[in-house]
Write a protein that binds this DNA or RNA. Structure first.
Length: 168
DNA sequence: GCCAACGTTGGC
DNA sequence: GCCAACGTTGGC
């Protein structure tokens, strides 16, 4: 028997007015290069820890309400982010050395939208999900780890109908 | 639009 | 190496 890889799970943020989960679903192969990450910690997660097939929660930031909207997966290993060398890109970094690019990206592929989106308010109020990094005050990472246990809770919650406040 | 939190920059 | 200034993120 081969050695079983431990699951690694992630959450990525995107502003839906810039790039939404629907945009990802509509992209060729439902896949896009996750470019523009300009934070060292987020870059290091992509470079050192992300593997093809890792599950990814897609989160809409700066949305009304901010919420987790669907499931995606890592679809490539980390590679240089071309936008850092594109002078016309808002993500251009003229100080990055093409021989040793500073910024990396991975491809992200949409798997399926959640049956219902889970708003941040519900994540914060949830006894387990409140531990998520995205629920922590002041957190600004655009790529962050999520434990498999937390991801499972979130996915199960997102598969349910909106909870009724009273039985019929 | 406001502002708290955070990362980065640069003077010293 | 410290830290104030600044820019950005992102919830509200």
């Amino acid at each position: 028997m081969g050695v079983k890889h431990e699951r690694r799970c992630w959450l990525v943020k995107s502003e839906p007015t810039t790039f939404s989960f629907d945009d990802l679903l509509a992209a060729p192969e439902s896949t896009t290069p996750w470019d523009g990450v300009r934070n060292y910690q987020a870059r290091n997660y992509m470079r050192d820890d992300m593997r093809v097939g890792d599950e990814v929660v897609f989160y809409h930031s700066n949305a009304t309400p901010p919420c987790a909207v669907g499931l995606a997966e890592v679809a490539s290993a980390a590679r240089p982010d071309p936008s850092q060398f594109d002078a016309d890109s808002p993500y251009a970094d003229p100080t990055s050395d093409p021989g040793e690019p500073r910024w990396l990206l991975v491809d992200v592929r949409a798997l399926r939208p959640f049956a219902r989106s889970i708003p941040l308010s519900e994540i914060k109020a949830h006894p387990v999900l409140r531990e998520l990094l995205v629920a922590r005050r002041g957190n600004r990472l655009s790529v962050m780890p999520v434990s498999p246990e937390h991801l499972d809770v979130l996915v199960a919650l997102a598969a349910t109908d909106v909870r009724r406040s009273a039985p019929d």
